[in-house]
């Protein structure tokens, strides 16, 4: 099995996702970057499940479902902000600090 290659792929996806979270200014794109990280996780889980049985695949299914719920809530909050501020640039949200 190409275990290492799969792990590497997931690590790269994870890194790209983290990069996106830290750098992209658009709220929706940040949400998409987080999806990338979650997909890296799913790859890991499914690869390992070929060794250790079905639990990994079940875990991956749960992750997908919960990610969907999370993104639903996230989009709702981004929409809320868009309504109030007419912008989804998350850099403009620094009213509270210190």
């Amino acid at each position: 099995m190409l275990l290492n290659q799969f792990l590497l792929l997931s690590a790269i996806l994870f890194t790209i996702g983290v990069y996106g979270v830290i750098v992209r200014k658009n709220g929706v794109l940040v949400l998409m970057s987080i999806e990338l990280v979650l997909n890296a996780v799913n790859i890991n889980l499914i690869v390992f499940s070929t060794y250790w049985g079905i639990a990994g695949q079940v875990f991956a299914l749960f992750t997908i479902a919960i990610a969907a719920a999370e993104v639903g809530v996230g989009l709702a909050i981004v929409l809320l902000i868009y309504r109030n501020q007419r912008s989804v640039d998350i850099d403009e949200l620094d009213e509270m600090k210190g």
């Binding site: 979270v21 830290i22 750098v23 998350i90 850099d91 620094d94 600090k97």
Partner: peptide, 17 residues
């Protein structure tokens, strides 16, 4: 230390990571 609390989410995320 208070200055590290900039209010910017992405700086928080960067600090986190």
């Amino acid at each position: 230390l208070r200055l590290t609390q900039t209010g910017r989410i992405q700086q928080y995320a960067a600090l986190f990571f």
